[in-house]
Write a protein that binds this DNA or RNA. Sequence first.
RNA 1: GGGCGGUUAGCUCAGUCGGUUAGAGCGUCUGAUUUACAUUCAGAAGGUCCAUGGUUCGAAUCCAUGACCGCCCACCA
Length: 907
Amino acid sequence: MEKQKLPVSEIPKVYDPKQVEKNWYQHWLDRGYFRASADPRKKPYSIVIPPPNITGILHMGHALNNTLQDILVRYHRMTGRQALWMPGTDHAGIATQNVVEKSLREEGLTRHALGREKFLERVWKWRQKYGNTIIRQLRRLGCSCDWDRTRFTMDEGLSQAVREVFVRLYEKGLIYRGKYIINWCPRCQTALSDEEVQHKEVTGHLYYLKYEIEDSGGQTVTIATTRPETMLGDTAIGCHPDDERYHHLKGKTALLPLLGRRLRIIQDEEIDPQFGTGVLKITPAHDPVDFNLAARHGLEAVNIFRPDGTLNENAGPFVGLDRFEARRKIITELEDRRILLETKEHLHSVGHCYRCQTIVEPYLSLQWFVRMEPLAKPAIAAVKKGKTVFTPGRWTKVYLDWMTHIKDWCISRQIWWGHRIPVWYCGRCRTAEVLREIEAGAGKRTTGGGKAYAEPGMMVCRQAPEACRTCGSTELTQDPDVLDTWFSSWLWPFSIFGWPEKNKDLRYFYPTSCLVTGYEIIFFWVARMMMAGLEFMGKEPFKEVYIHGIVRDETGAKMSKSLGNAVDPIRVIDQYGADALRYAIVSITSEGQDVYASEEKFEVGRNFSNKIWNAARFVLMNLDPGLSLSKPPRRASLSPIDRWILSRLNQAIAGVSLSLDRSRFNEAVSTLYDFFWHEFCDWYLELSKPAIKSLPTQWTLAHVLENTLKLLHPFMPFITEEIWQRLPHRGDSIMISPWPAADKAWIDRKIEGELQLVVGEIQAIRNVRAAWQINPKDSVTVAIKTAREKEQGILKDYSTTIVQMAKVSSLQIGKNIKRPKESAVANVGRVETYVVLSGLVDIQVERQRIEAALADVEKMIRGLRSRLANRDFLTKAPREIVEKEQKKAEELENRKKRLEENLRTLC
RNA sequence: GGGCGGUUAGCUCAGUCGGUUAGAGCGUCUGAUUUACAUUCAGAAGGUCCAUGGUUCGAAUCCAUGACCGCCCACCA
């Protein structure tokens, strides 16, 4: 974009982000600055985006997550690394299917009515229409992803990687199929992994039921349960073998109320005698504990639910009822028959579907699983050895705990949108008998020891086979299920580079440098990527995992669209600008803590943008057209004030770089805010006004501004580019300009210290003015004829400057006298009003002021003296601390003397 | 049941290796305006750093115990 330099007078007073953001983003795209490719001359820096769901709409969590990534990428790009940010989206199996099904419902359609193929066409269409919303929104945020490389988890290449991984794991004996209790969502009608179930504490009820013992003359046993409807599937009852209360039940049989089924009475160590009555009803098909007990004791499993959560034929008179309705009916029935003895409130946690919040049902069904333990071992080792580091470190433990107690991963989903399981079955080989055997194989783990799981007539292939390998039949059907969404996401860090093909990008950019994500997907995603990366690439997928907090609203609720409390980042960008949003969200994110977003935070960001804008406006207004930034003036020609701000600048460069290297984003941004606003603008800009015609000062203004813009660029890319383009810069864009290096030669602690003293003096004068209650309107009398004038060196220079600025005048306080008309005074700006004539002092007030100050100083001196008199302190504290304190004490003594002298002269 | 995080100004929060008189933003109050910026500037008020005990010359910071708030994990029938 060729930008005509506006005459300064036409730079608007208020920063307007709209056009600026659009133009510069397009400029960056046009010039290809986001692109990165393998370049052996440079060090790589790579990040893969946590792929947002295609159903996603940018929320504050995304804004935080992606701003942090963009900061890292932009920073490292400027430091000269080959920085790549790989973007992409996730097909989000269940979530997307739900969305499309919902839109079908509005048309009065169901996916079943439509059929699998037609339905998938609809999903693809939906994806084409809405699936890139979030990508567009990320661009508005300013994300510098290499968009040409954008991937989608259902792209052909990534799908191929999925099949490859499935087959390899299968051949290694790490994938098997089996009939187990899994988490079933009756609404989505699919299996869920353990991680996809959210447990919530709810107050339910504990029902005490009376079961009759067979042939015992009416003896009964009382059993406590939270889910009475599952009694219909009971096939046994049990107690702890050492529970003396129930020894008389050994070998007996109980009778199931309502249905009259005969129930074995078993003993098992796993049954807790403390819970309820100590007797457990055993429902193998609907409870994981019971399922295990049943496997040990050879009990039959009776399934009483249909996939949609209604009761099936096994439920006798309750067939067809919904599970919760059935619960109510059964309770009433049991009450009527006096089988329900007691109902107590009971706090327990109930699993909910993470997609639709329906209560999840433990359900016995045939599913595919990944055997995780062998995969977890290297993933544990890699983190223990520090190959991958978590920031903040406390997540290491969370990760390791989960990995150590890892359970097998249920990967099949009974939905249509996703990667179809690459398994085919031969209709001829799978006779009714074979199928019965498979069905009957509940609980038997048929694989292990490196051998592939096998079923007659089953083929696991990378491509659809033409014919059955055993009998040659072409009567083949593919497994109808699809894979868990995360089965493609866990390959993301290498599948996006074209794995299994070995190529330059993979070699150059893998392992990636940093993964930025929230803690809610450590188990879903981070841990599994570690396993996949180590298994298939032989290397950890990232050097660092940066875990940030969750964005909440002011009341602490997790922001979500459904709660209606979400602050829409796009609205914030429209209203305040992307830079303001980015600044705000970073400034409130301290390491790993959850953050609370609110309107006022974005206002602070907008105000900061505007401050930057106006400071730049001032500098540009005063810059000599011939000034060259690349030709620094001789050091001697710089005023002490110039040298002060240059020193401060270099401290800021060092501080910001260090903070970024340590991933302390909020620290970096606050350093910049303080430096820019409270040092550069409040002091330097004001003090530069009298010297504004001086070229060295102009150079300093422009130089400090330019370098601060660079430091700010990763955080606030748009406004920094806009201003930088108006400066006499070199190069095409700030985003590819080199990151400033802190030049130690410029850091001058002496000048900083001395100017701090002067600043202190000015502050003291401000205080005097306040104490005297001088209305500056009346009292522009300005002088700094203090003792300081006699002092040597910088202090004197500085005081002189102020005197010059102020144009000492002899106006008197209290009279409404017009301000002097000298232009110099007008130019002085705000500083002028701070400086006040000494001499015309209310002696009483001044004495009070000095006495108060003296008291303060004396108090501090007492504290210091007692410390310095302490032998332990002198011998045990580090020397530099002691020296610092001694110096401080001296300074205080001097100050005290001055104050006392002032007091004497007053009297 | 296990684990993690938090408790600092009226509000929201920083506070690194234990070391000056504990900071910021917002809010409140007082004042400023020929100004790059009212999306601005100056000033003031406002603190038992959750409690108790310990370590230390020195603790908001380290240790122990407890309280309260929040989160995560677990086969809490």
